[in-house]
Amino acid sequence: AMEMGLACVVCRQMMVASGNQLVECQECHNLYHRDCHKPQVTDKEANDPRLVWYCARCT
């Protein structure tokens, strides 16, 4: 999947907007926009540098 680069696995886009940054699952290393992931990634989750985030598939 490395050839995908830094794109969201849901929408396949790399564009990021304020409040909709890409977050990386620490287990599978897929990237998700906060708005694309279900459930939506919260501000607290996205902005906490100590948080280890896992996508819905890996939790």
Rank of each mutant, 00 (worst) to 15 (best):
M2R: 09
M2G: 12
M2K: 11
M2Y: 06
E3I: 04
G5T: 10
G5L: 04
L6N: 15
L6H: 14
A7E: 09
A7L: 09
A7H: 15
V9T: 11
V9E: 05
V9K: 03
V9I: 07
V10Y: 04
C11N: 01
C11K: 01
C11Y: 00
Q13W: 01
M14H: 11
M14S: 15
M14P: 12
M14K: 15
M15A: 15
A17G: 07
S18I: 06
S18P: 15
S18R: 09
S18C: 06
S18V: 07
G19T: 11
G19M: 04
N20C: 07
N20V: 09
Q21Y: 07
Q21P: 09
L22C: 10
L22Y: 14
L22S: 11
V23H: 08
V23C: 07
E24L: 02
C25H: 01
Q26S: 10
Q26H: 11
E27S: 12
E27R: 12
E27I: 06
E27A: 10
E27V: 05
E27N: 11
C28S: 01
H29K: 15
H29A: 08
H29I: 02
N30P: 01
N30D: 15
N30C: 13
N30Q: 13
N30Y: 08
L31R: 15
L31E: 02
L31Y: 14
Y32N: 02
Y32M: 06
Y32G: 03
H33P: 01
H33M: 00
D35I: 08
D35M: 14
D35A: 14
H37C: 06
K38N: 04
K38C: 08
K38D: 15
P39V: 03
P39H: 02
P39A: 03
P39D: 03
Q40L: 10
V41G: 04
V41H: 01
V41I: 15
V41F: 05
T42R: 08
D43Q: 06
D43S: 08
K44A: 12
E45F: 05
E45V: 10
E45W: 04
E45D: 12
A46T: 06
A46G: 11
A46F: 15
D48L: 06
D48P: 04
P49F: 03
P49R: 11
L51E: 14
L51G: 15
L51Q: 13
L51V: 12
V52A: 13
W53S: 10
W53R: 06
Y54K: 15
Y54L: 13
Y54W: 04
C55G: 00
C55A: 01
C55L: 00
A56G: 09
A56K: 05
A56P: 05
R57F: 04
C58S: 00
C58H: 03
C58R: 00
T59M: 04
T59P: 06
T59W: 02
T59K: 10
